[in-house]
């Protein structure tokens, strides 16, 4: 069997006395879309930050395709193919929408350090950036500063940046939160598209149960930083502990 595309072993992070992620061991395969669920404060976003490198773990290891990446910087992990869209919109506010995406394309193609050619002359980069804007339906607003976009469009731009990184591992942190009813399907279709590519691994934090049911190949549940359930969607959703966490129904009552 080939190595999982991304794997965490006993991954733990403590902030003072609080253990935000507690010995989570989990492996994700190419071609698999895993939804991570759990109540607020369960450690979902922290788990993402450990994988994408914004936080360093207190204990445990992270492996990508069998290689240990625990000590790599966030930029090195991005280069290695781990891409993340952030939950709280995290853009370059004064740069234009096109420039935002172009930055991600140009990082992927390694032309950041080129000094003496105008950025606009790199045609393929601009074309690719534009392509990603089209995919996220942002091509109309390409020239606007990111800060001028309405919230829903900023969320889309967040996703466009992730697409532009062309990663092997896509991490979406509540990508449709705060989007209007007619905007969300665009993003969900894009995620569905990525899922069909068997070489890509998708991790998705999501609360909306209809989205979870529609997309998930597998669900893992985090609660108080611990991995409490892992399995196919129907199975996990039916688990008493999940019902307890989500609906506040005590396990014995749910079982009854």
């Amino acid at each position: 069997m080939t190595a999982p595309s991304i794997e965490t072993r006993d991954l733990t992070i403590r902030f003072g006395g609080h253990t935000a992620v507690d010995a989570v061991s989990c492996a994700f395969q190419p071609g698999e879309l895993t939804v991570i669920v759990g109540p607020n404060g369960a450690g979902k976003t922290t788990y993402f930050s450990l994988i994408s490198g914004q936080l360093a773990p207190s204990e445990g290891r992270i492996l990508k395709g069998g290689d240990d990446i625990t000590r790599l910087s966030p930029s090195a992990r991005a280069k290695a193919g781990i891409g993340r869209a952030f939950q709280l919109t995290n853009l370059f506010p004064k740069l234009s929408v096109l420039e935002n995406v172009r930055l991600a394309v140009q990082a992927k193609h390694g032309i950041g350090p080129r000094l003496f050619r105008p950025a606009s002359s790199f045609r393929t980069v601009a074309d690719k950036a534009y392509q990603h804007l089209k995919a996220t339906r942002l091509d109309d607003v390409a020239g606007l500063p990111a800060a001028a976009l309405p919230h829903g469009d900023q969320r889309k731009l967040e996703v466009a940046l992730l697409l532009a990184m062309e990663p092997d591992i896509f991490m979406f942190d509540e990508p449709t939160a705060g989007m209007s009813v007619d905007e969300a399907p665009v993003i969900l279709e894009l995620i569905d598209e990525i899922r069909k590519d068997t070489s890509k691994t998708v991790l998705l934090v999501e609360h909306k149960m209809d989205v979870v049911r529609a997309l998930a190949d597998r669900i893992i549940v985090l609660n108080n930083g611990e991995l409490v359930a892992d399995g196919p969607p129907e199975e996990v959703i039916a688990m008493p502990i999940v019902r307890e966490i989500y609906l506040g129904i005590p396990a014995d009552e749910a079982a009854a």
Binding site: G53, Q54, S75, L103, A107, M165
Partner: peptide, 9 residues
């Protein structure tokens, strides 16, 4: 932070 996250050292 985001510049680092999209792959710039």
């Amino acid at each position: 932070m985001r510049a680092e996250a999209i792959g710039y050292r």
